[in-house]
Design a binder for these strands. Structure first.
Length: 117
RNA sequence: CAAGUAAGCUGGACAGCCGCGCGGCCGGGGCGAAAGGCCCGGCUGUAAGGAAAGUCCGGGCUCCGCAGGGCAAGGAUAACGGGUAACACCCGCCGGGGGCGACCCUAGGAAAAGUGCAACAGAGAUAUACCGCUGGGCGGGGCUCCGCCGCGCCCAGCAAGGGUGGAAAGGUGGGGUAAGAGCCCACCCAAUGGCGUGGAAGCGUCCAUUGCUGUAAACUCUAUCCGGAGCAACGCCGUGGAGGGACACACAGGCCGGCCCGGCCGUCCCGGGGAGGCGGCUUGAGCGUACUGGCAACAGUGCGUCGAGAUAGAUGGCUGUCUUGAAAGACAGAACCCGGCUUACAGGCUUACUUGCACA
RNA sequence: GCUAGUGUGGCUCAGAGGUAGAGCAGCUCACUCGUAAUGAGCAGGCCGUGGGUUCGAUUCCCACCACUAGCU
């Protein structure tokens, strides 16, 4: 990814849960907060409730792909945490994509254009 | 053809674009004395499983303990023979149980070393006599009053029949007896010893002796095995902070700075090692194939071959073609590595065999 | 990755081979003008699931499932 590193430390996640702005859909919960850096940082949470290791890995890879393909439309300099919810395991990629973009516009990380075809 | 039994295989394939981890090669940029390191880019190779799972056993490897050996404690295993690095696994075989059969299941040492337990029911549970059967004695009764037949009590004998139970002390038939009883006989069953056979467990039955409840996944006994912890093991590097030592009191040295002036700071070494980094980290009881030995598990030899190594964790998204009725649709993600076991699993394929039906 | 522990009535727990129990909660009755408390009675359980040992298993053994805790 061009200008994004991953978010790893547990205290970083907890800070975002408490102080970040949030938006929720049936598939995701997204928290974000501006950091004073030139790059964005992305953290992905796939909890044990989602299922076994195969299901958790698939959801995590799809979220990373969503972020990678739409990274150019997002504003840099933010810490972002995406928490997968249970229904994301059973959703198709297109459903996840629409939900992801809607949440990004809601958090004003992406310019409010009209929806992609 | 139908129903079934056993063993094994497979777990969509190919191509293109974008993206990620690791290895190799090449190019560019800055730092550096150089090797080379860091960053960026390109090409190329490669990348989850039959169970990677559960963590139930057995090992390799590493550290700790230990002169060597033994005993005790604790734990594990349990017919016999073999395989293996080892095993609780596998193969063969025996005994027992199930199925018409192919075949399947089986923790399967010792109860005659000892201790314990066996509720309820039943007269009685490791030895007994409730109802009974039989003989003798006494009392009294009936009849056709010699004699025979019931009844009550006492004494003695018996364990066949009844019933209870998971289990009642070998089973069935006959003789025998007052009534009975392996008391005796025939056949059968079980145990022990001898004999024959087999490599052994075992099997056979001619013979002899005996007739003994079950339970050891109750304590126990016998035989064999086991030191403990785990790659987050362990080894190396290691800013800061705390400790010790050496030098030194400014004319030295370090940092800021293009340089001077100026400003700030004691410096170096030792040891331990928190954060972090590197190694361990993938070539191994490896995989494929052919031959040989063996019923088999397996072993040996020759040839060929290298197939992940991440560290918050790399495989995703889109498109097309093929096979399909329909195109992904089962269970499921390596984390030091192997051998097993157990559990989950859509669909498909192969081989051998059994039973039934039909036809030749 | 590794190591322990627990599953029993609606809830909290006993029971350690022989008919499953206690307290709270629930229902009915009594007492009271009424409620609470108290007393009497009642119902509610495949003992987490599946095998095995045993005459007999909630208990013993094996496998699985779920949950909880700990180490790093």
């Amino acid at each position: 990814m061009e200008h994004t590193v991953s978010l790893k430390q547990n205290h970083e996640f907890r800070r975002l849960y408490q102080k970040g702005k949030s938006a929720v859909s049936p598939y995701f919960a997204v928290y974000c907060r501006p950091n004073r850096r030139s790059v964005s940082r992305l953290g992905i949470t796939t909890g044990v409730k989602l299922g076994n290791a195969v299901k958790r890995n698939r959801v995590r890879r799809r979220i990373r792909e969503l972020y990678r393909t739409h990274e150019g439309q997002l504003l840099p300099g933010y810490d972002i945490v995406v928490v997968a919810r249970t229904r994301a395991v059973f959703a198709s990629y297109q459903e996840l994509r629409h939900s992801f973009l809607r949440l990004m516009r809601k958090l004003e990380l992406a310019p409010p254009r009209e929806a992609e075809r």
